[in-house]
């Protein structure tokens, strides 16, 4: 795969895709090109059927991402777009949420504003010690629009989400861990290793079961409990038709590591 990008560095060492936001001079602020390149990359991974199982996204330099470049309506290309179309083009977090594989945010530095929204859209977050997370959008008269107002309360509860958004309160990594916003806090020099270890653990699971577990949790949380239980039952029974489930059972009874083929 020779797809190269201006705003992102990435490499694929099966089964893990590592993505690095690569605009360190502007603290990895999201711009139109980055949003488009991220979308293109995941589309490419999907169509290529290369066996990517887990993605890790991090930032080059001192920040994960501290926001977005100001969007100026009425200039250049934006003349041909409505405001909502323009926002749609910038939705980088939605791309991560719809990635079709688990995505881990490896927070090497601060995740602020749009950077926080990117982190929130991932399945799991590992943070380096000393990182700050939060949204200052409101103090600039901006309403978060890439999922922040919805994903933040779903992760940390309404009260803390409102406090963070309305009073522009940043959390440090330890507090973010306590409230469930990040899954783990590690020393900065251990971040790459820890996130790769987590990715490999995820990738060691049966591929179809991994997808279904994610689907039942994420879709089920938008359903009533009863509907969610129906979805879980149907998908778990559908998995009975997979060779990997038979292999999983055999390997358990034979006390060895399973060899999953995604079938």
């Amino acid at each position: 795969m020779d797809t190269t990008y201006k705003t992102l560095a990435w490499d694929f060492r099966p089964p893990i895709v590592s993505i690095t936001q690569n605009r360190p001079r502007v603290s990895n602020r999201v711009n139109l090109l980055m949003a488009m390149e991220l979308r293109h990359l995941f589309q490419h991974l999907h169509e290529d059927e290369c066996g990517a199982r887990v993605a890790i996204i991090t930032g080059r330099g001192r920040a994960f991402s501290v926001g977005r470049e100001p969007i100026s309506f009425g200039k250049g290309a934006s003349r041909s777009h409505t405001s909502s179309e323009w926002l749609e083009l910038h939705r980088a977090a939605s791309t991560l949420a719809g990635a079709g594989m688990p995505v881990i945010a490896a927070l090497n530095g601060d995740a602020i504003d749009h950077g926080l929204e990117l982190a929130l859209a991932c399945d799991l977050r590992i943070s380096a010690r000393g990182v700050a997370l939060g949204s200052t959008d409101l103090s600039q008269g901006i309403v978060p629009w890439d999922g922040g107002t919805q994903r933040l309360p779903r992760l940390v509860g309404k009260t803390l989400a409102l406090e963070m958004l309305l009073t522009v309160r940043l959390l440090d990594a330890e507090e973010a861990h306590r409230v469930g916003l990040v899954n783990a806090v590690v020393e900065p020099d251990a971040l790459a290793r820890s996130s790769e270890k987590m990715a490999l653990e995820i990738a060691s699971g049966a591929p179809i079961a991994t997808r279904y577990a994610r689907e039942t949790v994420l879709k089920g949380m938008d359903m009533t409990l009863e509907q969610g239980l129906r979805l879980e039952a149907d998908l778990s029974i559908l998995l009975q038709s997979t060779a990997d489930r038979a292999e999983g059972l055999r390997s358990f009874l034979e006390r060895r590591e399973p060899e999953f083929r995604g079938e």
């Binding site: 079961a209 577990a213 879980e232 998995l239 997979t242 999983g248 059972l249 390997s251 999953f260």
Partner: peptide, 14 residues
């Protein structure tokens, strides 16, 4: 469960 090729089926995913 997932490491055995399954998902929880006693309500755990919900």
């Amino acid at each position: 469960e997932v490491s055995l090729g399954m998902i929880p089926a006693a309500g755990g995913t919900q």
